[in-house]
Design a protein around this nucleic acid. Structure first.
Lengths: 135, 135
DNA sequence: CCGTATCCACAATGATACTG
DNA sequence: CAGTATCATTGTGGATACGG
């Protein structure tokens, strides 16, 4: 039996990692809510349903591609519901589901921690940058 | 005065977006904690300080480049402290700061929501995929 | 009006060899 | 032991023209 190559060892390690984390629900949740546009989209329809065009304006700077992609993944995860009304032209509304609403306290918790501690973080950064300054 | 081009309008929109979100602390916090390795690294030293080599093994699959990069950003943000002991060979320990520890309840909250609701998410995904199935 | 299709740019991640 | 330097690769997001 030949000695394992670095690549092989790394592959095994990777499997362990996957076994430990890939299945961890917190990882998937973080990946979802930390998406660049998710927070803005959810916030935009927190209080009432919104049409696609409304979201497009309210979430300023988002391209149609990203807006649709964001809405689709939120819909797939059951956080947002999509309603199509067959008018001419067609009308589409999006709104938070109960599951989507249940996520809001968590978002608020994140906001709270950040508001309470981001000053410390910024001070730490300044100190680190000052101390580490090279030239 | 010429009509604004699409690019110009988009640029203005982008600035509005930046003004609204770039300064939002929750955005920065999410970006930090949702990093691929941050969760694992923080978890690895949650109960006691760890040496670089220990982290390298415990956080299986991480390359030295990413481990160092992760540790540096956590150190810069004041979530982790780095201690160098001048032995031969050199010894370096990392541990959570008070600020780092204060983040743990939030991580647990995320984990809790995920554990409580990821089943719903998975059901929603299955339903969505089933309904949307094309070929 | 509500998206989809396409192409492009760039940042993020990874493997790995090498240095203090 | 504890990283750093380099190169290759991939994923992610953006602009925009066009279709239902």
């Amino acid at each position: 039996m030949a000695t394992k190559t670095a690549a092989q060892r790394r592959e095994e390690a990777k499997l362990e990692y996957d076994a430990f984390m890939a299945g961890c629900p917190s990882r998937q949740l973080l990946d979802r809510i930390s998406d660049k546009w998710v927070g803005l989209v959810l916030a935009a329809m927190a209080d009432r349903p919104r049409r696609y065009g409304e979201l497009s304006k309210e979430v300023a700077g988002v391209s149609p591609k990203m807006l649709t992609q964001t809405l689709r993944s939120l819909e797939r995860d059951g956080l947002v519901a999509r309603y199509v009304t067959a008018e001419v032209p067609v009308r589409v509304d999006y709104e938070l589901t109960d599951l989507g609403h249940s996520l809001m306290p968590l978002m608020r918790a994140i906001k709270s921690w950040a508001e309470a501690h981001m000053d410390d973080v910024h001070v730490a950064r300044s100190e680190y940058d000052r101390t580490t300054a090279s030239a």
